[in-house]
Design a protein around this nucleic acid. Sequence first.
RNA 1: GGAGAGGUGGCAGAGUGGUCGAAUGCGUCAGUCUUGAAAACUGAAGUCCUUGAAAGGGGACCGUGGGUUCGAAUCCCACCCUCUCCGCCA
Length: 419
Amino acid sequence: MLDIHFIREHSDIVKAGAAKKHIEVDIDGLLKLDDERRSLQQKVDDRRSEQNKISDQIPKLEGGEREVKIAESKLLKDKLQEDEKKLKEVLKQWRALMVQVPNIPDMSVPEGKEDSDNKEIRTWGEKKEFSFTPKSHVELMQKLGMVDLERGAKVSGFRGYFLKGDGARLNFALWQFAMNFFNEKDFTPVITPSLVRGESFFGTGYLPQSEEDLYKTQDDSYLAGTSEVAAMGMHANEMLDVKELPKKYFAFSPCFRREAGSHGKDTKGLVRVHEFFKFEQVVLSEASHEKSVEYHEELTKNAEDMMRALKLPYHVVVNCGGDLGLGQVKKYDIEAWVPTEDAYRETHSASYFHDFQTRRLGIRYRDENGDIKFAHSLNNTFMATPRLLVPIIENYQNEDGSITVPEVLIPYMGKDVIT
RNA sequence: GGAGAGGUGGCAGAGUGGUCGAAUGCGUCAGUCUUGAAAACUGAAGUCCUUGAAAGGGGACCGUGGGUUCGAAUCCCACCCUCUCCGCCA
């Protein structure tokens, strides 16, 4: 959510930002509604003020005088209730519009409508040249007994899977590697709930826009598609001290996504599944654009370091305006090379939000001068499995169908090749 | 799942219809005292909306949302959360 004062004073910037994101929102309508809201609020406040004055007098009066004042107050009350009703209606529309206003993308975000317009900013690693025709991760893993998709679908439904044998081992190895990677960093590891109530989804911007991609329980909570939701909700409605910032979390949770808009995409294998696991980096920082940029680069670097340690060829793209979420100011995707698709596929997504999320969540802090500010928030994937298995398996495959274990994982796998 | 108790400022905790944005204690900040500190004493201090150049003015906020009333922290309803006991359970 943006600050209404900012929207009022810089409606041209807000409009341009929405246009860049290819999001339609009626800013002029919002401004008109805001005028209405303020004048009604004033009216209601004035009436209340009058009524408060009368209310103060009533207990001091006796008999007839008292009755007269009470009657007067009753009349006032009727008018007040009328205005309050109007105000409530206006506020409802106002809020509905407010949550649709997107955050303003950074100047450095390229123009564009969809992910194909994203701009590559760097590549790392050599795309491997195979002396044979590489096989897909599905074929390789099935042959090696690392995954069971048929039984996965039988038990779990569409996109269901069992990781088993060395598939499960490889996943555990990655998790241990991830944990150790963060051991000496200034991040607090945290295992977050996946079963989360609506407020945190509103706060992070997943609701109301993306409700169809969330699993909802019969108790009206939702299953989170990323631990960002719970990690951000953790400090909702808190007043932090500037000395506590930045708060850096290394959050882990199971993640659930309905993939409602992705029917027919990636229907085979482990790229797109309904249920997966993710280590996420989440940062609450001081309200400064420079700090946000600094942490954004840091979070991106952490993920890249991990990819480099695994020796997976990847590139980094800066997402275009149309590929940014409602609250995102800027986003980098890291995409790993997947040989059988002859393409880079997204494994990480690093974004910063300025105070878009924290304003909704009420995450504030008192700075050195005692001023109250909304913190800034950022997040980036560190490692999502089983998706990350896909580039590992495919890039490390050998002609005989065996998989070389990435060097950094050998200690956790206890072997250097999967056969 | 059943029975009960409760949610008040940074914390503890009073307040059961009007003079309560809210006693008191602790903590915080400033000052006095002190070589410095502690103690003691004096004083200050909530958040949000709105209006105003500012000083200031007005309004809201006692878990959340409704309701009763001229008037609600206080009464009623729903929901959320916490605690205790019983049952079930990894």
